[in-house]
Design a protein around this nucleic acid. Structure first.
Lengths: 333, 333
DNA sequence: TTGAAAGCGCTAACAC
DNA sequence: GTGTTAGCGCTTTCAA
């Protein structure tokens, strides 16, 4: 021990390693980074040994200062308690980890979002993926921080920020098509959290229009289980003629199911239901949800890749309709 | 513009600000950090103005290098798709944000957990909260990195790492007591993911023992909805005499409910159920779950506070039994 | 193949 | 109240 210092508690630095290994600090760098200069095998051994002995871990801050890369990718989500965003965070953490990057998590629903942004900018993230509607301030902040930003799971086309998004329109239309073609429904409501321009709503509308059916029953509520529960009441009271419903998110569908049940209405017997997202929860609802599944893992990997150097382009991902029971399809056997 | 440089794209530094404001770099520091020296109001104005104009954000890496504090707190969870951990992450992110810290998220279920730990250590986190069972390697890594570590939501008493934990034992016992005292059940099974030493299991057992009831039906499955679904089958086939069940986590309870429903058994009519966690999902199951609610927000705040300077001590948090319908209590009205 | 040294952007003595 | 300056730990050019 001795030499490692009277100070005792501070962590080992590259200088300590160099000293213990009897080499220069440059050589320590060469072996730690596997370059840019070659190192003799024997020397490398000694260095590795010293590193091990000292428990040396290169200081990311010092490295970041000189390389300009922090090894940090930011993620902004509206709310982690929403399972969809939790699943997204999970997939992104995995993808970032696989590329040696750490994920810095931030929730947008904070009182001082501006401070958050400033703080994130201060950490000189290598990139930021956002699943929350960016504020003007946020975009400006990112711009002035020269941050590579990718939007995920949001309608594309905004402000020139590249966006990776599920094919909401086609997925929504397919959900409705299933209800019409397979189950013969003709009065199909929509439960959503967006506005009329939202692509799932357009998909629902067009699918109905194309078949000469009317797209009139729209219930707009929060993107949450509570919202869904409220929607169940509205559906029952104001749209009693409806026989099926397309719910634009699994989160809302969970609430619709709970609300309908409390109201004594059966799914799919009284009201058939198809949702959107394909979250883990959709498999365990009563009844299990038929839902348009989003390829989150693929999107997450592409998002990280884009931030880490791929060209920043918009991408649209096809969804897959996972058939379960809420639509009226029989139990698989 | 002019002066801000031909380079153009690099972000503004403290030197740029000092130059534009016509002050020394020290003064810029003083105003940015609000100390340690006073600054004349007029000067401060000029500096603030320059900062604004240049879009200057102090570089966290440089600051970290000199202060020894990174402004980063790590969180290790087993899996974010588990709602309990998502809720925990949410609460911790909030608490960290409120103290100006950012949260670095890491999932433990990665192939190269060791690399992850090394990487985290490199970022010189100001603290780490872990909700995943620490490996020996992990503990050692943390130790050699002189990382302040707090375990959360795990049984206390391990390896001298301070732990914040819900009162699993008492919460479990209270759940069982409710089933016995209020609803008159006497054959109450347990569905859990832990072993016999797990405190919820002890709580269940003792509550039963204390009342002269037998604690025999234990079903051990994964801590997940799938696990719960499997448990439903086991309960039905192997413990048909049981009239109530205490499920050690909401996640599992969701699966138990789904499984029981698929098997045609009603809750609470055929089998009453009380769970543990008090997650958001518990309000929207069919029927809604009676569950021992954990004060996650409080725990999260304390965890961050401990890391940021409070003494590192173990803490135990009482749970609250939230009465809903899965236990057989009537619908509130 | 190795070493010396110039910073990266910042904080905080210490001097004025 | 303000300015000068010595590093924090690291990467990498340049010379040996």
């Amino acid at each position: 021990m001795g030499r490692s210092g009277a100070g005792g508690t501070r962590s080992a630095t590259r200088d300590d390693v160099a000293r213990l290994a009897g080499v220069s600090t440059a050589v320590v760098s060469y072996v730690v980074n596997d370059g840019p200069r070659p190192v003799a095998a024997a020397t490398r051994e000694r260095v590795l040994d010293a590193i091990e002995r000292l428990g040396y871990r290169p200081n990311a801050a010092a490295r970041s200062l000189i390389t300009g890369r922090s090894g940090l990718i930011g993620l902004v989500v509206p709310d982690l308690e929403n399972q969809y965003f939790a699943a997204l965070a999970k997939a992104l953490e995995r993808a970032a980890s696989a590329r040696g990057q750490r994920l810095v998590l931030a929730q947008a629903d904070t009182p001082d979002f501006a401070d958050l942004l400033t703080s994130l900018a201060g950490h000189r993230l290598d990139g930021l993926v956002t699943a929350a509607l960016p504020t003007l301030r946020g975009l400006a902040e990112a711009g002035s921080a020269q941050l590579r930003v990718v939007r995920i799971s949001q309608a594309p086309g905004l402000e020139g920020v590249p966006t990776l998004t599920p094919d909401y329109y086609t997925g929504g239309a397919a959900a409705v098509a299933h209800l019409v073609e397979v189950h013969g429904h003709s009065r199909i409501a929509l439960v959503t959290g967006g506005d009329a321009a939202e692509p799932r709503e357009r998909g629902w509308r067009d699918a109905l229009d194309d078949r000469g059916l009317s797209a009139r029953s729209v219930v707009r509520v929060e993107w949450s289980p509570s919202g869904g529960r409220a929607a169940a009441a509205v559906l029952t009271e104001r749209h009693p003629d409806v026989t099926a419903v397309f719910v634009a998110s699994d989160q809302q569908a969970v609430g619709v199911l709970a609300g309908l049940h409390a109201l004594g209405r059966g799914v799919p017997s009284d009201l058939a239901l198809v949702a959107f997202d394909g979250s883990a929860a959709s498999e365990f609802t009563i009844p299990p949800l038929t839902t348009a599944q989003v390829p989150l893992d693929q999107m997450a990997e592409d998002a990280i890749d884009e931030l880490l150097g791929e060209p920043l382009v918009d991408r649209v991902y096809p969804t897959t309709l996972v058939i379960r029971e809420s639509c009226g399809c029989p139990l698989p056997d």
